[in-house]
Amino acid sequence: MSKSESQKEKSPSQMIDERIRDLGDWRGKMLSQLRALIKQAVPEVVEEWKWRGVPVWYHDGMICTGETYKNVVKVTFAKGAALDDPSGLFNSSLDGNARRAIDFQEGDEIDEEALKALVRAAVTLNASRAKA
């Protein structure tokens, strides 16, 4: 069985579990924490696995992605430019007219309540646009 065939048999959640396990360092722990917070904020969130290995969270549309790089774990909100960010979490991809991102580096603390509020705001925005 080829790798692509075995991946087709796994759920997106299982593939995200594998990614976290395979990273085996601070990035895996950070991605795991971020994932847990997203699920706490929106328990009915749907997880997907896109673009050859990017976790994506959906509810009435895309909420955000969880990308891992050598020195950063990036959470990109698909409609971040349309969201209020009173806590100033967005620190990356600030120039575009749609997306906004939060780059987490090793040792960064997560403002859990602010992140959950941002996730909920993204879901509210998605729901309002889905009804329009």
Score class of each variant (00 low, 15 high):
E44M: 06
I102P: 06
R21L: 05
Q7I: 12
S13P: 03
K3P: 01
L37C: 08
L89F: 00
R35M: 10
E5K: 15
P12C: 14
A121Q: 00
V73A: 11
G107R: 07
K10T: 04
G107V: 06
G88M: 06
R52D: 04
D60L: 07
D95H: 12
R100S: 05
T65A: 08
P86G: 09
A36E: 03
W51Y: 05
V42D: 01
G96A: 06
V45I: 15
E109T: 14
L83E: 00
A122I: 12
A117C: 00
L31R: 08
D111R: 14
V46G: 02
K70I: 06
V73N: 13
A132N: 08
D95Q: 10
S11R: 01
V56D: 05
A127S: 15
Q33Y: 05
G66A: 03
P12H: 13
K74E: 11
S13Y: 02
L125T: 07
V45Q: 03
A114W: 14
L34I: 07
V56K: 04
G107A: 07
L37V: 12
F77R: 07
M62V: 15
Q14K: 13
S128L: 07
N91D: 08
I20A: 02
E44L: 05
L31Q: 14
D111Y: 13
Q33D: 08
I38V: 15
K3T: 09
D84Y: 04
K10C: 05
L34A: 02
A41M: 08
R129W: 01
D25M: 04
V73P: 11
R27F: 10
S2L: 11
T76S: 15
K79D: 08
V119D: 11
N97S: 09
C64L: 11
V56H: 03
L125V: 13
G107C: 15
F104C: 10
K39F: 01
I102S: 10
